[in-house]
Design a binder for these strands. Sequence first.
RNA 1: GUCCCUAUCGUCUAGCCUGGCCUAGGACACCGCCCUUUCACGGCGGCGACACGAGUUCAAAUCUCGUUGGGGACGCCA
Length: 495
Amino acid sequence: MESAKESHEKKLPSLVGAKMGKVVTRLPPEPSGYPHIGHAYAGFINWYYARKYKGQLILRFEDTNPRNVHEEYYEAFKDGYQWMDIEWDKELKVSDDLPYFYEKARELLNRGEAYFCSCEADDIKASRRTGTACSHRQTKSEDNLEIWDKIIDGNYAEGEIVCRLRIDMTHPNAVMRDPNIFRIIDYPHPIQKEKYRLWPTYDFANALEDHRNGISHVLRSNEFATRGELQAYIRDLFGFPQPLIQEWSRFAIEGSPVSKRKIRPLIESGFISGWDDIRLTTLLALRRRGIIPETIKEMTREVGLSVAQPVLDWSVLIGINRRLVDPIASRYYCVTSPVPVIIEDGKPTKAIIPFHPDFAERGTRTVTVEDRVFIDGQDAARLKKGDIFRLKHVFNLRVEKKTVKAISCVFAGDELDQAGLKIQWVTDDTVPVELRIPNVLFIKGELNSDSLQIIEGRGEAAIKDVKPESIIQLERKGFGFVDENGEKVNINMTE
RNA sequence: GUCCCUAUCGUCUAGCCUGGCCUAGGACACCGCCCUUUCACGGCGGCGACACGAGUUCAAAUCUCGUUGGGGACGCCA
């Protein structure tokens, strides 16, 4: 028991170069969509180390592309982190720092470290592949500074010109081949409105913000690995110290896309219901599926700072969740394809059923069984004449006659047969239940037409009292999240 | 095409840096038994892996080279 418990308390490794009280990490979301499990994973790691070393965690919205950013997502991220119990110490928006970036950019222009380039985007791209420089590289500082002012004054249109760093067009790391650091975007920003039209690119903003925010450790997924060199170069340009960088591999869950590019068409076609569809891995979806935050944390500790390419199976997440949710989920009976069981010699009998087998303090409900109950069609199919089974928490019955429409039984004693068959049941007093059973969205890259199964059933009356958003267990069916509880109870099965 | 990262049970991961303690440990899944008024949780046991090929060494999962596979970058996205 102890060894099992210890193994569940797997810890993340110590952080290189971390000093107590001196660690500052960051949550750097772009508010352009809903947070998903990958954000929660990275968020938890950053939160974990900030707390472990009694440092600080900074929430920094990377909102430097007004075309991508929408106001609602700032809140969506905060909600997501809050749900994960990830608390941050300071909240910033990169878009608040444009004056700072402007000042730094002008300094670089003045020093000849940057220049404006009016080549076509495609030509710039091609020249990076071939490693050839364009004539704009030679523009004098004074002229570049003049162009800067003209852009601010509105003399250039979007797409007409960009500001690039003068590094090395033949650098082995293509990211270093004179990267763009500013571009014109004539589009209102949700926070800054129409105040700016010249926006810094990711690398420039990120490199300077990390220094400006006093970030000691940049903990991020390695899709940014090749940008590291550029970001370090930018900080070096100003003589800023370098934070320590720790990267891990971006992970995936088998059959569950994360990208907006893949998900949006599914929503538009109506294949899935929205960003909170229970087949997705957005935090909203996971919550509605009955996955709890602790499960995501546990999974993060398990996967750790791996640099391979983890592709997790849903069973890992679901298995961890089942263990964590077991003690908190009350048990209920629910039957699908109900088949009547006629108790020929039935007399009203009170069944007292506990809500949880291990915690008596969670209480019981009392149901009176008369001469008819319903059992699940699948259980009915297994019964044949002469079989003895127990109506769980009531008494034993013997099958006398079985027709396609009903099963007739007689009382067969009260003694509990430990090894005998026990069957869940409902009376006439039920509530309609809709079970939604999710499955993977994609199988081997193909959309899975069977990714959501909906089953109608009858739940015992006690389910009417379950608070929406509770996680319950339908005995022998599994755990689920009570999504709505009205005329009908919708339950999203975790699976 | 060029550059970077990576390769351990079905899946995830520990070990690799500092070679011997590894007949390779754990989690999830699966199978069996036990516990049990659930096919839940829990307990015990089982199945099950060092991608391949060379090399270095008394000794290699661990070091070197190559092959193959996987991921990422080469955006006026982040």
